[in-house]
Computed example of a mutant assay.
Amino acid sequence: MSVFPSNAFSLEYRPDLGLIIGRWLQDLPPPELQGTYEAMLAAAQAHGNCRFWLLDLRRRPVAGPDLNAWFRDQFSPRIAAALGGPLFTAYLAGPHQRPAAESDAMELYFRREAVVDAFPQLFESEAEAMAWLRAGQEREGVAPA
């Protein structure tokens, strides 16, 4: 697993919310970016196979083709099996990222993710992202008390 600078990415588990929260504080090259996803998976496994992630992309570009291919072909297929169920990911994206987030390539990515039991959703509002994750937890019967 790649190591990433702590001033470039923050990762925390919030037991009160039942969430893994990852925030990129700056852009990272693909090997380090892959390392952040591996770190999130390890944190999720360490915290009861947490399947609800809030990922803040607002300070880094929406992923390019190299990361998307790695995510699609190598990382995503492992997630549901590793965590014992589907992954629900709320991505926070800023208005400046809307063109990339709403592209045909991103729509295809979202459809492919559903095939491997990963359910990503894009949000501009953190409150809306949290509400979507909470609704998913309730549907899955794993909402924190």
Rank of each mutant, 00 (worst) to 15 (best):
M1H: 05
V3A: 11
F4R: 06
P5I: 06
S6Q: 06
N7V: 02
N7G: 14
S10Y: 00
S10K: 06
L11C: 08
L11Y: 00
E12D: 11
Y13P: 01
P15M: 13
P15A: 14
D16F: 01
D16K: 11
L19F: 10
I20N: 01
I20H: 00
I21W: 08
I21R: 11
R23K: 12
Q26W: 04
Q26H: 08
D27W: 00
P30H: 06
P31N: 08
G35R: 03
T36Y: 03
Y37K: 02
E38M: 11
E38G: 05
A39E: 08
A39C: 10
M40Q: 11
M40R: 06
M40S: 04
L41A: 03
A42N: 13
A42K: 13
A46Q: 15
N49M: 00
N49V: 01
W53E: 06
W53V: 05
W53M: 06
L54G: 13
L55Y: 11
L57F: 15
L57E: 14
R59Q: 15
R60T: 15
P61Q: 14
V62N: 09
A63C: 04
A63P: 03
P65I: 09
D66S: 14
L67G: 02
L67E: 11
L67W: 14
A69H: 13
W70K: 07
F71W: 03
Q74K: 14
S76K: 05
S76H: 12
P77Y: 04
R78Y: 00
R78S: 01
I79C: 15
I79V: 15
A80L: 02
A82L: 02
A82E: 03
L83Q: 09
L83E: 06
G84E: 06
G84V: 08
G84Q: 01
G85S: 09
G85F: 01
L87D: 02
L87Y: 01
A90G: 14
A90S: 12
L92Q: 03
L92T: 04
A93S: 09
A93D: 03
P95K: 05
H96R: 06
Q97H: 10
Q97E: 13
R98S: 13
R98F: 06
P99G: 15
A100D: 14
E102H: 10
E102S: 15
E102P: 00
D104W: 05
A105I: 13
M106Y: 07
E107M: 00
F110G: 08
F110I: 05
F110L: 14
E113N: 08
A114C: 12
A114N: 12
V116H: 11
V116S: 12
A118L: 04
P120Y: 10
Q121P: 01
S125Y: 08
A127C: 02
E128S: 13
A129N: 08
A131H: 00
A131W: 00
A131P: 00
A131D: 12
L133A: 05
L133K: 03
L133F: 00
L133P: 00
A135L: 13
A135E: 14
Q137T: 06
Q137L: 04
E140I: 03
G141T: 04
G141A: 14
G141E: 01
V142M: 02
A143C: 13
